[in-house]
Nucleic acid binder design. Structure first.
Lengths: 214, 214
DNA sequence: AATCAAGCGGAGAACTTCTCTCCGGTTTGA
DNA sequence: TCAAACCGGAGAGAAGTTCTCCGCTTGATT
């Protein structure tokens, strides 16, 4: 691939991630084109249809997420710290986009399923270690963690993101929420002992495409 | 106002809240019409332009939020419990919509500013009480609370909300995050002693309308 | 440094979606 | 019962979106 083509691809993927995050998966491709600062033809040449773009984006982000998960597992000794590190990394990647995308039901590609499964099991290991160490609440599963991470890292409406250009507030809030997941925070009173949410729960829930309006 | 007109208004406001939440403030009014199950003329007759609809919706939701804040203040003895109760109520109202709307900069209406200020000071009192009681982390302000509440209560993309039709998971996650805001969760190690975010910070950040793309 | 295949962006045609109004019929309250 | 208020469907006009053609530029290779 030529250098300029690679540059375009990166610009497109970055723009696509942001636009899909802000406007959902049905966002006009035109917006992506404009944000990437390229011509429409450049987008349509590389990605003949929306799905191919989504697929490439998903692969790109999932790959980086997998790296982050492995790094978190090796770098930290403390199990909860590893979970913490991973969640922060996922937020930096705007994991919401990945999950959003890969859960929308378009993804049937074998390669994507492979990397998704691999990432999931790496993360699952992090979580089980934290459970075993007794630092992560037993009623918090990977599904809960992913959901929290999605919710906290999505872009805010109404220009509110201007409040936090470098993500410092986001990471602070992640830390606060993560503190809430410790057994220490749970303390003695466990008001609602829910069952933890698994990753499979998420996949199942998002499996079927949303019904169209009316 | 006639009974059928009032019924239409309620249907419109409920639909508008959901649509604005999902698609942002520039969502096609057509979607609101369809979701409300009314004819287009009914919407346009009552609300000649988008802004009047936004204004009415904001007033409606802010009023209910104010009620919730006052109720939380009177019902609970424990200061932190009052904060907790309020945050849950705000989530049920999908406070994200209110904030989204009222922060978008369209709102200059004196009446709305009045009720916004009133609500803010009621909530501020809740928070100060919890600070005084020593149960709420000192580095958590009303802005942090509002931001967390917005982030956690917004609808999820990709049909993920199907996971949680009655909001049980949402409220569980709210409780987890709230646990993270206690001084107990903070414990000894305070890694990043940030300054708390105020409500004014939010207003200021969202004050100016977002710059158009490019 | 010369060559030329590969890549790029702008203009715009065809199509879809959105906004908003007219009008005949229905519902409500007195 | 009656009049005023309200409702929904159809559809014209405007706006936005998709996608392609084509002449120019960039980059890898020799």
């Amino acid at each position: 691939m030529r250098a300029d083509a690679a540059r375009s691809r990166r610009r497109i993927l970055d723009a696509a991630r942001d636009v899909f995050l802000e406007r959902g998966l049905e966002a006009p491709l035109d917006l992506i084109v404009r944000r990437a600062g390229i011509g429409p033809a450049t987008l349509y040449r590389r990605y003949p249809d929306r799905e191919s773009l989504v697929r490439d984006l998903t692969g790109d982000l999932l790959g980086r997420l997998e790296l982050a998960a492995e790094e978190a597992a090796t770098v930290d000794d403390d199990a909860f710290a590893a979970v913490r590190r991973f969640v922060h990394a996922a937020a930096d990647l705007r994991m919401g986009a990945v999950i959003l995308v890969l859960l929308e039901g378009l993804v049937v590609d074998a390669e994507l399923v492979r990397i998704r499964t691999a990432t999931a099991s790496t993360v699952e290991a992090l979580i089980e270690a934290a459970h075993a160490a007794g630092t992560l609440r037993p009623d918090v599963g990977m599904g809960d963690l992913v959901l929290l991470s999605i919710r906290l890292s999505r872009p805010l409406p109404g220009g509110l993101d201007r409040l936090d250009p470098d993500g410092a507030v986001l990471h602070h809030h992640l830390d606060l929420a993560l503190d809430g997941l410790t057994t220490r925070a749970a303390g003695d009173a466990a008001p609602t002992p829910r069952t933890p949410l698994s990753f499979e729960d998420l996949i199942t829930a998002a499996d079927r495409p949303t019904v169209p309006d009316r």
